[in-house]
């Protein structure tokens, strides 16, 4: 199994992408992270899905999590009103977020190399080197884990504990 066998296109977001748009991408596709591109459209960074969720929660509640419990249902609902104002750029500028530079792997990288490099970089998504600039392709963490399990003779997809 090589990286080229697992590569897939993924949606790419930019600094200007709002929290609503980024959240929608994750909620609809079940992605574990998002690829962030620079002004030229070149993928440069990865933000995890939980960091996108961070973008949606008021920062003072992250500084003091115990405050999150004091809202009633109506009050909590009002907190989401500011979502349209937040962008992926806010996330990239937030020093509390570990924005990861995108990992690039060769198309002929073996499964073990992909796995080792992704763990080393603690990233959920890797860019496949030399993939078309206008349609970059990526290897994702679920597909790598799936391939590792298949190689190890593990259970088929969907046959895990219910």
């Amino acid at each position: 199994m090589r990286a080229a066998d697992l590569q897939v296109p993924l949606p790419v977001v930019r600094r200007e992408t709002t929290a609503v748009e980024a959240g929608r991408l994750i909620a609809d596709s079940g992605l574990v992270g998002l690829v962030v591109a620079n002004r030229l459209g070149v993928p440069t960074a990865i933000v995890s899905a939980v960091d996108v969720l961070r973008l949606m929660v008021p920062g003072y509640l992250l500084d003091d999590v115990s405050l999150a419990a004091v809202f009633d249902e109506a009050g909590a609902g009002e907190l989401w009103e500011h979502l349209a104002d937040r962008t992926v750029g806010d996330l990239l500028d937030d020093q509390g977020v570990a924005v990861r530079k995108i990992l690039t792997i060769d198309a002929d990288a073996t499964l073990v190399e992909m796995a080792a490099r992704m763990v080393d970089a603690r990233t959920q998504i890797a860019l496949v080197r030399d993939s078309p600039r206008d349609a970059p392709t990526f290897v994702t963490l679920p597909s790598v884990i799936n391939a590792v399990l298949a190689s190890a003779g593990g259970p088929e997809p969907g046959s895990g504990p219910q």
């Binding site: 115990s66 405050l67 419990a69 004091v70 809202f71 009633d72 109506a74 009050g75 009002e78």
Partner: peptide
């Protein structure tokens, strides 16, 4: 009224 709706007891661990 929005302040009065806060439940301070929930902040206690």
């Amino acid at each position: 009224a929005r302040v009065m709706a806060l439940n301070e007891k929930e902040a206690l661990g």
